[in-house]
């Protein structure tokens, strides 16, 4: 049986305390499941305090990271903060973690931008550290990158055994890790270039997405049925002129308008067309967790009203 649909919004900015309060309450009122924060060093708010504050202004809205970059914080520190936010939000956290990819951030911070394989190795170790911390049990971990000695993290998260773990990626290795370790798998464009470019856009087309879903399915084995498949739609538009919009965006993907519309990063059409499209994608990919941007909150509200929980 298909998983019920739910919807998230990735938000990154607010100009004041009152704006943030109004924004997050509106997202909750419109029926979205989750508010997600990215983790970058441009114009974005810091994710952990922003989601903590969002939780304080709401009662049922889930809060999460899409996603925390593992290299910005020691995993034991991340885990302690995550457990704190989960406890103080009464169990509403979805913990998204990734290996890190945005080169500009690393350069600004003076952090070494290691080759992908090293970042992913470190990320795999970090997952073990985070899981160990969230268990609340004393544990030790001696890896290449982290060394934890007889440490019992406190507080315990409210959700047991731990908050849902969200891992997203576009390459086979990270998607395999996600399939084995995560509760929510984000299927994304491959960002090995360190920036979002035409190559990344092409990597989100239907056939590429088919292949990624196969990787996840294969690595997940019997876990597949427990996984929630999530996609972040960077091109999202409610419009009665689907064809016209497709013609305009196709050059960005370097493909035909028809191919662009079927991309795993695009969600375009009238409310009815988008609803049909999501049903088809759930059948094809198992996609049930749909994430749009801040700018789409209002236009997608009718889709949320029709599909959330269905």
């Amino acid at each position: 049986m298909a998983r019920p649909f739910r919807f998230g919004v990735q938000v990154s900015q607010a100009g004041s305390a009152a704006q943030w309060r109004d924004k997050v309450r509106r997202i909750e009122d419109l029926g979205y499941s989750t508010l997600f924060m990215p983790d970058h060093f441009g114009q974005e708010l810091a994710p952990m305090p922003a989601i903590a504050m969002a939780a304080a202004h709401t009662t049922t809205l889930r809060i999460g990271s899409l996603v925390f970059d593992n290299d910005y914080k020691h995993p034991a520190i991340l885990a302690k903060e995550a457990a704190t936010v989960d406890l103080l939000s009464d169990g509403r956290l979805e913990l998204g973690i990734g290996a890190g990819w945005m080169r500009a951030d690393y350069d600004a911070l003076g952090l070494p931008y290691d080759p992908p394989a090293v970042r992913v190795d470190r990320f795999e170790e970090a997952l073990q550290v985070v899981k160990g911390c969230l268990s609340g049990e004393e544990f030790s971990f001696h890896g290449e990158h982290y060394r934890i000695t007889r440490y019992a993290s406190w507080p315990l998260p409210k959700q047991r055994p731990r908050p849902p773990l969200l891992i997203g990626g576009g390459g086979r290795r990270v998607l395999t890790i996600a399939a084995r370790e995560a509760d929510i798998v984000g299927v994304n464009p491959n960002l090995r270039a360190g920036e979002i470019n035409a190559e990344a856009a092409k990597d989100s087309l239907r056939e590429q997405t088919d292949r990624k879903i196969e990787w996840v399915r294969e690595a997940a084995g019997p876990r597949w049925d427990d996984l929630e498949i999530q996609m972040r739609f960077f091109v999202a538009k409610i419009t009665d002129d689907r064809a016209g919009f497709a013609a305009a965006m196709a050059p960005m993907f370097g493909v035909s308008p028809e191919e662009a519309l079927e991309s795993g990063a695009a969600l375009v059409g009238s409310v009815g067309e988008v609803v049909d499209q999501l049903h088809r994608r759930r059948e094809r990919w198992g996609l049930s967790y749909v994430v749009v941007g801040d700018e789409n909150v209002d236009e997608f509200a009718p889709v949320v009203a029709r599909l959330a929980g269905a």
């Binding site: 607010a14 305390a17 943030w20 708010l45 305090p49 600004a108």
Partner: peptide
């Protein structure tokens, strides 16, 4: 030592903004 100051600056700026200073 627990956090890079750039990470901390962003968190502190966010907290100050969202708490109204």
């Amino acid at each position: 030592d627990y956090k890079h100051p750039v990470v901390l600056a962003r968190e502190a700026g966010t907290l100050d903004l969202l708490s109204g200073g």
